[in-house]
Design a protein around this nucleic acid. Sequence first.
RNA 1: GGCGCCGUGGCCAAGUGGUAAGGCGGCAGACUGCAAAUCUGCUAUUCGUCGGUUCGAUUCCGACCGGCGCCUCCA
Length: 468
Amino acid sequence: MAEVRLYNTLTRTVDRFVPADGTTVRMYTCGPTVYNPAHLGNFRTFLFEDLLRRTLRLAGWQVHQIMNLTDVDDKIIKRASDRGLTITDVTEPIVDTFHADRAFLRIEDAEGYPKATEHIDEMIDLVARLMDRGAAYQAEDGSVYFAIDRFDGYGKLSRLDTRQIRPGARVSHDDYSKENAQDFALWKAAKEEDEKAGAAWNSPWGRGRPGWHLECSAMAMRYLGATMDIHCGGVDLVFPHHEDEIAQSEGATGAPFSRFWCHGEFLLTDGSKMAKRVGNVATVADLREQGVSAAAFRHFVFSTHYRKQLNLSAEALEASIEGVRRVGDFADRLAAATGATPELAEVAAEAEREAAEALFDDLNAPLAMGALFKFIKRANAELDRAGNDAGAIAAARNALAGINGVLDVIPDHGPADDAGEIEAMLAERRDARERRDFARSDAIRKELEDRGIAIEDGPTGTRWKRAR
RNA sequence: GGCGCCGUGGCCAAGUGGUAAGGCGGCAGACUGCAAAUCUGCUAUUCGUCGGUUCGAUUCCGACCGGCGCCUCCA
């Protein structure tokens, strides 16, 4: 096993990571609230988690990842009420969109996508345990709250002193009655709209629905045990979401909830956080409309370290499209090559080692990307020199596959349904060139270019490829 | 008001107490009928500003300027 180092929000340092059981990494990644298609900021986080799971596997560990789908919350209920629908009516199509978008971006499947509404029993059990331990109480409004002053470790993740909240901070106007302003809802008493929208369940504390934080604790422990290896999310979840998860989980079990906490930074647009309320969101659908491939978007996201803010811009996307085209051309060239200089094998081995080391060092994808491009440049130079070492070609293909297995930045070719027609045009162009009728030859090339087909005349004939 | 992050060439970006990876773009050359692709060379004596520590700082410390984020339901 390679040594993997990860930044742990709990310790605020980069620590050596090894799964507790020595073989399988049990990780929980906070998923989307399914009332609107997830935006690219959300996907930056999911992409970081994809990078993490692929890197852990490259290091030799097995990965068991759980991502929750939050399918009951205030916004979902509001939408359902506004439209006279149930929450399921609202969430089902969005769940489908989420999986489609995820697939488009080549985000690997997690081992499970539990829904909050299907784990109400587990949540009720968790609340009951907290009540038994005296860490929770039912208020006059019927809702159940977690009493943060009965959990010593409260604030250890975010390092926020909740007594210090000052003017200038966003202050909540909570509809519910609590003993302490910082206490958070575990179980919310049902209101009229909740019942109508199908968002209310029976519990020992009356009809109600789970609080936001509760689902993650309940489902994480159900699928990963009392203590998991890694818990991930966006930085905005550090407080209060993850802090509260720790409180309610550890308050119930007495065991550490997660050994590592890893958080991805924001995607910015127009210089500020991409968020619904800022009104600057872009989605996968927008990406597709603009013709930005999954490979290009992955390149864009991985060109900056995950703990650094990243600004979405047309220029940056353009650079990624072009960069990824180069990777694709290189992959094609390697696939078609039959032999190379022996030095290619050395170049490949070095690239593979550099990329892996970069990834193992707190997911330094930008550095790994640098290693990939250095590899492409050197390997192309070796291929230009020609050679007959087939083993070197195989080594280069393996190295590329290894690095790309994590980054996944080789763009797909377009559909090849009109290949015969293109070949016919190329045959005509070849005849024209033999007659030195370059006007005709260039006209055909122009026509193909207009159809998104690029031509490359080489010593062994003409190659063509579809724009990616 | 509290806490934290960031500021590297035209753009994106890695990085280290010893003198700046990589990508995009640009310029020149090789190859080509011309292109494209590819290769080669060039494109930051400098890392927000000002001080300090040090033999030496972009890298450590301090101040300042600028940007962003968190401080209760937002990835």
